[in-house]
Simulated assay, not measured.
Amino acid sequence: MYDNLTNSTCIDDSEWKSDSFRLLVSAVVYGLVLVVGLPLNAISLWILLRRHGLRSPGAVLMINLAASDLLLALSLPLRVYFYATLNWPFGAGTCTTAILLFRINIRTSCIFITLISVDRLLALVFPLRSRSLRTSAFACKCSSLVWILITILCIPEGVNLYSALKACHHHHLPCFEFQVAAKGSRITGLGQAIFLLILLVVNIVSTVMVIVVLRKRPSGDATKVNNKMSVMLIFVVNMLVFIVFFLPFTLQLLTLNDKNNGEVLRAFICLASINCCLDPLIYYFSLDSFWQDKGKIQTDAASQSLSRSQDRL
């Protein structure tokens, strides 16, 4: 989320090129995430739009999460080029755009993953009382609000970053290693860290509540057991994404002014990028019949409903 941690705005090549191992690892990790994440999220988004559409709140939230991950993947070729060549010939505007796309993904991914967990929680624990709340229209409104707020939040950051980049006249601009001493950056970093920790707590509470509810319900046939496993896997994947990819990054934001914090945070930013490769697992386990066509899903649902009605008779 942050590439700006020291008091100096412009840095020499010798300062950021000294840690050659970290730069090489960054190029490899971003390259692997690009190769895996770009096609995986493009295919997931296509499946979600074509086979599920906006017919459920869960599908709406997952479409937005896939779109967010796709934005991140589309920005990674520039990061791979920079860390592979240690050169940035594309100018301040392109650098600013690439960094902002990354920040938008981290922020929106955290929110959409949490909303997916809350949606699943309401569907399991409060299925009747949450029926009026769990609608596609409401999910679309929430998603639009998330995108608008995050975009507004990124505008002043982008203006500040672009101005600082333009102020430096290095021939080889250190784009993703660039350092900006933004006013109030520590307050902003603390605010974002606290917000991410709140989202983590929401995911933990949701997971605990779902475990309790599922353990109280009787395990009937094999189908119900498989459904329980799928539900649990949703929350396990969500927790894994937060704890492994977002929590180290969040905790590092809380120590924003520590010595050498910039290099450590960039390493965690690299780690956080891997989340876009794991998110498609959420789509697979969250949506019933992920690969089926919408018409077939509706037919199957109607057949099951008819079968249950005949059983009652």
Rank of each mutant, 00 (worst) to 15 (best):
A267D: 13
G295Y: 07
G295M: 03
A267V: 11
D279P: 01
L281P: 05
C277H: 01
D288M: 04
L278H: 09
F290K: 01
S286T: 07
D279I: 09
I297V: 11
Q298L: 13
I282F: 02
L287F: 05
F290L: 03
I297R: 15
C277G: 00
I269N: 15
Y284A: 06
L271H: 05
S273K: 07
F268S: 10
L271A: 01
D293V: 08
D288I: 00
I282Q: 05
I274M: 11
D293Q: 09
I297E: 13
N275L: 11
S273R: 09
K296V: 10
L287M: 08
D279E: 13
F290Y: 06
W291Q: 01
L287N: 05
Q298E: 15
C270A: 15
C276K: 04
V264D: 10
S286K: 07
D279Y: 12
D288S: 09
S273Y: 08
I282N: 01
C276E: 11
F268W: 08
G295N: 10
V264I: 08
S273P: 10
C277R: 12
L271N: 15
I269C: 09
A272T: 06
D293G: 04
A272M: 12
I274Y: 10
L271E: 07
F290S: 00
A267S: 14
A272K: 06
S289G: 04
A272H: 05
L278N: 03
F290H: 04
A267L: 08
R266C: 02
L281F: 05
I269Q: 13
Y284F: 02
L265I: 12
A272I: 00
L271P: 00
S289T: 07
L278S: 06
I297A: 14
P280M: 00
S273G: 15
I297M: 14
F290E: 04
I297F: 06
S286V: 02
P280E: 01
F268I: 08
L287P: 01
L265C: 10
D293Y: 15
Q292N: 06
I282K: 00
A272G: 01
A272D: 11
Y283G: 00
F268M: 06
G295K: 15
L278Y: 07
W291K: 01
Y283T: 08
K296E: 13
L281K: 01
L271S: 11
L265Y: 09
C270Q: 11
A267E: 08
P280N: 07
C277Y: 05
S286P: 08
C276I: 13
S286W: 00
I274F: 13
R266S: 12
K294E: 04
V264L: 14
L271R: 04
C270N: 13
F268N: 13
A272E: 08
K294C: 07
Y283H: 02
K294Q: 06
R266Q: 07
K294S: 13
I297P: 14
K296D: 02
S273M: 11
V264P: 14
A272P: 03
F285D: 00
I274H: 05
F285W: 02
A272L: 08
F290N: 04
W291A: 02
L278C: 11
Q298D: 09
L287Q: 00
Q292G: 08
C277I: 11
W291V: 03
W291C: 06
C270T: 13
S286L: 07
V264Q: 06
K294F: 05
D279L: 15
I282T: 05
I274T: 06
I269V: 15
I297G: 09
A272V: 13
D288H: 03
S289Y: 11
N275C: 10
G295C: 04
K296R: 03
A267K: 14
I274R: 07
S286N: 08
